[in-house]
């Protein structure tokens, strides 16, 4: 275990972490977001396009806005029309797949990949980058990784220490009580889902622009769902989500190194998914879901 390994694990865990935070924002407001995968897909495509056409900053913006727009559909469907949250999410995942393929054909003249994109200039962490053995970990770091790490305490702070966060959580726990106290239940749910979409879009943008250097079809590989598992493992807390994401990142980093002639690589590819199952099997019983998660709220309760 060296610093290079740690750096690789950190890179691998970043999209999972962002997806976990995305899921957390939505579920804390009481909306289950299976559509994370689709929002990541659409974020990875628009992130790649924005970065290809105008540079990485615009890629980041395009990716986040694309994720947010898809999330807006999810919000309207689940909050206004009370569509089953899982049904809506699954539909959005299919929509994202078809839409990106369609757009990719139209914009890049091929169905499954974009042109190469421009990534952000990497950063060296001041002071730490002089410590020899830490070098691989603290030099040439993607700013999006740092942004993702900053988002962990920031999410905690907003959720736990602000009026907005309190209201958002109250809507996920007991919407009727929140409504009685004058909290705009629907507005809070919209806010939670939209923030979720923007973060999922960012996760997708990281994959295409920062990690791979282009959009490739199927590049999300279920990371949206793994993010949900990390969120559950982290007990719907940002710090817990970070821990769980690092676990998944490690597993992936190790599996990339473990390529050997003994174990067929198809089994190594299964590791993140098998780990997700194992983790969920181990923790779900003690996890505390937001009380009104996945439940439609209707005024007057008909």
């Amino acid at each position: 275990m060296d610093a290079e390994m740690l750096a690789s694990a950190l890179r691998m865990s970043t999209p999972v972490l962002l997806a976990a935070l995305a899921g957390l924002w939505s579920e804390r407001s009481g909306v289950v977001n299976i559509g994370l995968e689709g929002m990541m897909i659409i974020g990875s495509f628009w992130g790649a396009y924005g970065s290809y056409a105008y540079g990485p900053f615009w890629g980041l913006l395009f990716g986040m806005v694309a994720g947010l727009l898809l999330a807006a559909i999810h919000a309207v469907a689940t909050v206004k029309y009370k569509v089953d949250h899982v049904v809506s999410g699954v539909a959005l995942n299919i929509l994202a797949l078809g839409l990106t393929r369609f757009l990719c054909i139209k914009i890049f003249n091929q169905a499954t990949a974009s042109e190469h994109t421009r990534a952000f200039a990497t950063l060296n962490i001041p002071l730490l980058d002089h410590i020899g053995f830490l070098k691989p970990l603290v030099t040439k770091v993607s700013p999006v990784i740092i942004l993702a790490l900053v988002l962990v305490p920031l999410s905690s702070l907003v959720l736990n220490r602000t009026v907005f966060g309190l209201r958002l959580r109250s809507v996920g726990e007991n919407p009727l009580a929140a409504d009685t106290l004058g909290v705009n239940v629907f507005l809070m749910k919209y806010a939670g889902v939209l923030i979720s979409g923007a973060l999922a879009g960012l996760a997708g943008m990281f994959l295409s622009v920062e990690h791979t250097g282009m959009y490739v079809e199927g590049m999300t590989q279920g990371k949206g769902y793994i993010g949900l598992a990390a969120m559950i493992f982290g007990n719907w807390n940002p710090a817990g989500a970070l821990g769980a994401s690092l676990l998944f990142g490690f597993a992936e980093a190790i599996s990339i190194r473990a390529v050997s002639s003994v174990i067929p690589y198809q089994f190594i590819k299964m590791i993140p998914y098998a780990l997700t199952l194992a983790v969920l099997a181990g923790v779900v019983r003690r996890a505390v879901t937001p009380a009104a998660d996945g439940v439609a709220y209707e005024r007057g309760g008909e």
């Binding site: 809506s88 539909a91 299919i94 929509l95 797949l97 078809g98």
Partner: peptide, 22 residues
């Protein structure tokens, strides 16, 4: 592109459930 059909199909899933609610 034939993918326009995939888009139609996913829009159908969402709009069918919304239509029932309406």
């Amino acid at each position: 592109p034939a993918e326009v059909i995939t888009i139609l199909q996913s829009v159908m899933i969402l709009s069918i459930v919304v239509a029932y609610e309406i």
